[in-house]
Design a protein around this nucleic acid. Structure first.
Lengths: 188, 188
DNA sequence: ACCTGAACACCGTTCAAGT
DNA sequence: ACCTGAACACCGTTCAAGT
């Protein structure tokens, strides 16, 4: 743990993250890792030393966002109408996933693949959402045969569709509320 | 239009299409064009001569499928319950898009981009679906503020989500009928 | 301990050279 | 008219060589 080398390494790490934030904003989740290293003014090997996989880099970059989403789910547990709380949260998930091009896909892959460097963050967010869904189901306002994975897949699928739609301005919100209406438990 | 050279060219074209069918089935819409040329036993330049873009190749490969979908929409126009007809068709669209990995994305891109070699096929299919939607709306069973583009985006978004879901066996069908329920016109 | 960049095995795409 | 494959400009990823 020598001081000088650590400071250097940390500075490179920060430069890489700043460059990654820029390039992911410009070119999405698939931004060239070489470009990121280049913009950071650092060798490509240094990028790989700090972030062994693209997912590990995204994890560090997006960790805060997932935390916010997780915290939001927790605080929405206290809101009065369970099904509204779930709908609100799904809308925020979709909006969050629309932050960067390709992010819906990255999250979806991370949820399906435990080896992904993004898995932990995404799975944490998913369980937080799961509690929100459970509450809505126990309140009798959402069908009991729906899983949190399905409902998240739906929200991300809509975010994905909106991302490559021409007139998609409010598509996500409309489709989500429409779908929530369809998910209502009508006691069959 | 000399005979011999034409026969040669046509044979190469057929070899390329056969190879493309195999490799797209194996690796999806993003299959390596080099691999396709390789498996066809043909130079990469020959592939580009016959199919100037990846979309042009996909167009030839999938043309028949889009035709079927278009014809289906037309014949469903005669079925008794307009909203059921629409739901059935959207289900078949989603199922068709699930044929190859990446196909939902290719179709979505083609619909948004008039320059795409896939645009004509996809747009034709879209208008056929549009007539189905219109009929359901005129029958008063689907809200009038919904567009065919939105409804197709929804179906493809679900197909996309199912494609990268673990437990997605019947996700598309369930979500589609659920959503159609939400799209019902309740006369507001 | 950390950094660098050449090296490797791939892409998509173009185009001079061949028949 | 058609075919070929080298060439170019890119990737992601690894690893020997440097400090």
């Amino acid at each position: 743990m020598s001081q000088t080398t650590r400071a250097d390494a940390r500075k490179n790490r920060d430069l890489l993250l700043a460059a990654a934030a820029e390039l992911v904003a410009e070119h999405g989740t698939d931004a060239s890792l070489r470009d990121i290293a280049r913009r950071a003014g650092v060798g490509i090997g240094t990028l790989y030393r700090h972030f062994p996989t693209r997912e590990a880099l995204l994890e560090t970059l997006l960790n805060a966002n997932f935390d916010v989403l997780r915290a939001r789910a927790d605080s929405l547990l206290a809101s009065p109408v369970p099904s509204d709380a779930l709908l609100t949260w799904l809308g925020e998930l979709a909006a969050g996933a629309a932050t960067y091009q390709g992010l819906p896909e990255s999250i979806m892959n991370a949820l399906a693949n435990e080896e992904s460097g993004l898995h932990a963050s995404c799975a944490g967010m998913r369980s937080a959402g799961g509690r929100l869904l459970e509450r809505a189901q126990q309140a009798g306002s959402v069908r009991s045969d729906v899983t949190i994975s399905e409902v998240i897949a739906l929200a991300l699928g809509l975010a994905w569709a909106a991302e490559r739609s021409v007139d998609a301005s409010d598509l996500v919100a409309r489709m989500l509320s429409t779908t929530m209406y369809g998910l209502a438990d009508r006691g069959q």
